[in-house]
Design a protein around this nucleic acid. Structure first.
Length: 582
DNA sequence: GCCGTTTTCGGCCCGACTGTTTTCAGTCG
């Protein structure tokens, strides 16, 4: 198989750029949208793009017709697209960066370029300082100041969306504060936080109350607020000290809460589709509610009412990305038993002071029990992971004695004897089989030698899965969001082998990992590969990271039955072994 | 550029907000 010069992410990025360039050109807005829709479609793709191209099946994807199919094929097979190159040549490269500034769209950017020959952010900044921008039609002194402010912010926060895991604690404490305000009925996060996206730009919060004032004040005066950006009748925006995070709160009457929550949860792509469906059925769906053709308002008590009205299953927020959930919900194919946090009985993947963890086995066990869990899989690093205090084979026996002592000391809870064994460059495991066979849970992970090529890395994992001692592949792509790219890997091949051999895939909940990520989870589920959700805990404070693994599994449409650590400890271990014995 | 029990043309989601205007265009979510 020839590796594709461009993968789906790269192709989507080109389509996105074409959309921007077409907007600059003043092209028909619907043509522009077609490129955006196609980019969304590719990003949510769970099939192999290269295969779709080879088999000429691109046009089976909704939103992709003949024109886009040809362009995508050209990109995938040659790595370039003539149409794209021509468009790019027509504008200065810096214009695309100008478009990233707040309140800056194609019309304004083109005016700046045509009238002032401003073609980069640096030139724009200079033009503002010299007062030349305010002379333009449609611009004024205020726009000039706003642009300068935007440039400053852009420089500071360039591409730095925050990890969901870094943001959620702040969000939850703000929500608790708002819920305690007298008169407040309901509170909820909205936007990407509620959809449990991997990373978050701004945080949107909603509250319902008869009077907006007290709730708005509660946010404006909340601890940790650095700047009050703005406060009006029904909205308040602040910037938090922590992580330079912007938080927007809207307060509205409780009867408008459900439609507003739905509106502000998004995603945009999901909404565009829903509104189209609504229109077909004679409803107009907007932020302010659902209206019939005669203008009367439909009573919407909660979000489920909206989906019911459209004759489809309820779509949980995590799934609202227009990646097939709408078709599935219309046909009744959406999983009704998506994994819930409450389904999880035990935590998989943890470290203690025996290797690079911060807390003792007993501390970890007590903390996990405190969270309502029944077991914790102890999986220290193996000897190859020298930097992480990896255990020698001999150390294991002594650790097992301590595990036995802790298990006796804490009734109703159990530490399982496991290991996170390194997958060496060849795909061999870092312990002898005779040692691995004695363990209850064997996670195999890659920690060293990341710089192999796609074929070598794929083969490394395939080889590892051939060892019957291996139960689970840990953080299969090795990515660290914002820090390290996933290693090159043919995920389809890895998952096919996992399905064939009964190897389980980890969904690692560490906020910077989320690995497998949601789209890979979906690919795994489609192949019948079983999963575990893990915390990858190195200290007791990491144990709640399980919620991010659960969120990722849900975003990948994983049902309870597909996640093995929803089973009690004995059945969990038996299921792991049974998988391998198939 | 896509799409079709309104099918090969003429549609394509909707409304608020802002700053600029003097009735509206552009941007955003």
């Amino acid at each position: 198989m020839n590796p594709s010069p461009l993968d789906k992410n790269a192709v989507a990025k080109v389509l996105r750029e074409i959309s921007l360039l077409l907007q600059l050109k003043g092209e028909n807005a619907f043509k522009v949208r077609a490129y955006d829709t196609a980019a969304d479609r590719l990003l949510g793709l769970t099939q192999d793009l290269g295969a779709l191209v080879r088999e000429g099946r691109l046009q089976e994807l909704p939103g992709i017709g003949q024109g886009l199919a040809e362009k995508i094929s050209e990109l995938v097979t040659t790595g370039k697209l003539g149409f794209h190159e021509e468009l790019k040549a027509a504008f200065p490269a810096g214009l695309l960066e100008i478009l990233q500034l707040p309140d800056m769209g194609p019309k304004k950017a083109m005016a700046l370029w045509k009238e002032l020959k401003v073609g980069s952010v640096a030139e724009l900044e200079q033009a503002c300082r010299e007062g030349r921008v305010r002379e333009l039609k449609g611009f004024g002194a205020k726009s000039e100041a706003k642009i300068l402010e935007g440039i400053a912010l852009h420089g500071r926060a360039q591409g730095k969306r925050k990890l969901l895991g870094d943001v959620l604690p702040t969000v939850e404490s703000l929500l608790a504060r708002l819920q305690a305000v007298p008169g407040v009925v309901r509170v909820s996060p909205a936007g990407s936080v509620r959809r449990r996206a991997e990373t978050v730009g701004d945080v949107d919060l909603l509250a319902s109350a008869p009077e907006a004032g007290p709730a708005l004040d509660a946010l404006a005066n909340a601890p940790g607020v650095a700047v009050l950006i703005g406060k009006g009748e029904s909205k308040c925006s602040v910037r938090m000290v922590e992580a330079d995070l912007q938080v927007d709160l809207r307060v509205l009457p409780d009867e408008d809460f459900a439609t507003a929550l739905h509106h502000f949860t998004g995603s945009k792509a999901h909404h565009v589709r829903l509104r189209g469906l609504g229109q077909d059925k004679g409803f107009k769906i907007s932020e302010w509610g659902v209206h019939r053709a005669d203008g009367t308002k439909v009573l919407i008590r909660d979000e489920a009412d909206i989906y019911r009205l459209l004759g489809m299953q309820y779509v949980p927020p995590e799934l609202r990305e227009d990646s097939g959930e709408i078709e599935a919900a219309l046909e009744g194919r959406l999983p009704e038993d998506l994994l819930e946090l409450e389904d999880v009985r035990g935590v998989v993947h943890s470290h203690s002071t025996w290797s690079d963890g911060k807390h003792s086995l007993e501390q970890m066990a007590r903390a996990a029990k405190e969270l309502g869990l029944q077991y914790l899989t102890v999986t220290e690093h193996s000897q190859a992971a020298v930097y992480a205090g990896g255990l020698k084979e001999d150390d294991l026996k002594r650790q097992w004695e301590e595990i036995d002592r802790v298990n006796e000391a804490i009734p109703g809870f159990r530490l399982l004897k496991g290991i996170e064994v390194d997958i060496l460059e060849s795909g061999a495991l870092d312990y002898r089989d005779s040692v691995l066979e004695q363990l209850e849970v064997v996670i195999g992970s890659i920690h060293v030698r990341h710089n192999l090529n796609e074929e070598q890395m794929t083969q490394r994992l395939l080889n590892a899965m051939d060892n019957p001692c291996l139960n689970i592949i840990g953080h299969p792509t090795g990515r660290l969001i914002h820090e390290r790219d996933p290693y090159p890997l043919r995920m389809e091949a890895v998952l096919d082998r996992a399905a064939e051999r009964g190897v389980v895939m980890e969904v690692n909940g560490k906020p910077a990992r989320l690995d497998l990520k949601a789209e890979h989870v979906r690919m795994a589920v489609q192949r019948g590969v079983k999963l575990v959700v893990s915390a990858d805990a190195h200290k007791v404070e990491d144990l709640p990271h399980l919620i991010f693994a659960v969120a990722t599994a849900r975003k990948g449409w994983a049902r309870k039955g597909e996640v093995l650590n929803t089973l009690p400890a004995d059945k969990f271990i038996r299921a792991l072994k049974a998988q391998r014995a198939r």
